[in-house]
Write a protein that binds this DNA or RNA. Structure first.
Lengths: 248, 248
DNA sequence: TAGTGGTCTAGACCACTTA
DNA sequence: AAGTGGTCTAGACCACTAT
């Protein structure tokens, strides 16, 4: 076939073409050349760019669509997917208002401060020695009832802009805020669920008896280049938590 | 192209060919014509059988492989997958012995009896009025320590053979036993996790304080035709439970 | 060596979106 | 009407498995 100066596909030459193409596309996303919400080049363009057949391009795109990194939309194009957190463990609490509809809890930020990190936090965020963090303490409530208590840590080097902004202006969702105010885009996260008993302070915050079962969700959120951006611990009364999975 | 009396692909004619082919293959699995462990027809045979191109066959098989129902093995064939329960919530307990290796807990069956089901159990197993169940109570232990308490219910109509067999001969894993002794093959399951506090009886069984946090896992297991085969409730002390998910 | 799935090509036509 | 992804075809050659 005719190859109009196609870009050489790097990486291991023994790998199948479509996998090497996949790696190239991953790199584009990680580097921010292809950004969430914007369309990537069309299949025909990719065919020309890399000098491979359309079927090979489609197979490479297929794998990334299956992994949830890209979304195809017939007639419009293929886009870098913005993660939604519908599968978050935190969604498996009863989050209903009086009329029975599910709703996003309202946020109240109790504290926001620049700190030296604990060892745990420094390790989670992979901080250099002496690097500082922004710590936030937040409540999430539905109709006056406290659903979660959250501790949030962010590397000060990337999120300094947050210190300048009044907490009142934060809104309910933090991640869009991180993106617009700090240019930091969350691409994925790992959550770990454990169960414990509420101590007296947390019992008061969550309005339960001391010693009542409590669910803890630890979240490590990463950017598209897989660098750690946010470390978060959420606590909630275990009552009303109901998590479901399918096995096959 | 030449079509040597291909089998007509049923279902909705507006659906893409590869999706109709996928439905046909699903039906073969559900009907037990293609059984776990045995190879399905080769791609060339499917091409002939259904009078479609090889690419279409591959796409149909691709979808079922992605969904975890089939497994391809180069040079050998494509097989119906036997589910493994590695993703079960029950695996997220510390199941380690003294030497630190993960191990399958040993089982002790405390009770086995033919019963009339409670309403909950009858509904879960979709039993006809008056149909009976086999109930088993089982402990799962690691090095003398009780990890789980399990209640298991099975429709007597399908699992009657179990009543004839001495509980001592059951072994550690029930599902292979169901398959060999009763011809019932588990294809998938749905698990639901909730958290509560141990009552006095369960506290004694699990060797924890009364009121200590306890994890409950409800499992509904289905056959390849999606009929309910087993209903199970497992209880365990919440300490040592640690469940992790990835979000993207 | 024969038969399997794995990779790759080159094109045709369709369905949908946007302008 | 032009451009996008979606479906489908027909074949070539390769890598791996069993015998």
């Amino acid at each position: 076939m005719k190859t109009n100066a196609p870009i050489t596909l790097g990486y291991d030459e023994r790998l199948p073409l479509y996998q090497r193409l996949r790696e190239e596309m991953l790199a584009k996303i990680a580097a921010g050349e292809w950004t969430p919400g914007a369309p990537i080049p069309t299949e025909a363009e990719l065919t020309r760019l890399y000098g491979v057949a359309i079927g090979t391009v489609r197979k490479a795109v297929d794998t990334l669509v299956n992994e949830g990194l890209l979304i195809r939309s017939q007639g419009r194009g293929t886009f870098v997917r913005r993660p939604n957190f519908d599968s978050s463990l935190a969604r498996f609490f009863r989050q209903v208002n009086a009329t029975g509809g599910r709703e996003i809890p309202t946020s109240r930020i109790l504290a926001k401060a620049l700190q030296s990190p604990s060892r745990t936090v420094a390790a989670a965020l992979e901080l250099e020695h002496g690097e500082q963090v922004i710590h936030m303490e937040r409540l999430r409530m539905v109709e006056g009832r406290t659903l979660f208590h959250e501790d949030i840590w962010l590397p000060a080097s990337r999120f300094g802009a947050l210190l300048e902004i009044d907490s009142e202006r934060f809104g309910e969702l933090l991640y869009p805020f991180y993106e617009t105010q700090c240019g930091q885009c969350i691409a994925s996260a790992k959550e770990t669920l454990t169960v414990g008993a509420a101590d007296s302070a947390m019992a008061k915050v969550l309005s339960v008896e001391e010693g009542a079962p409590m669910v803890m969700i630890e979240r490590m959120a990463l950017g598209y280049d897989r660098s750690p951006l946010e470390y978060r611990i959420s606590r909630a009364a275990a009552e009303g938590f109901r998590y479901q999975i399918d096995i096959s």
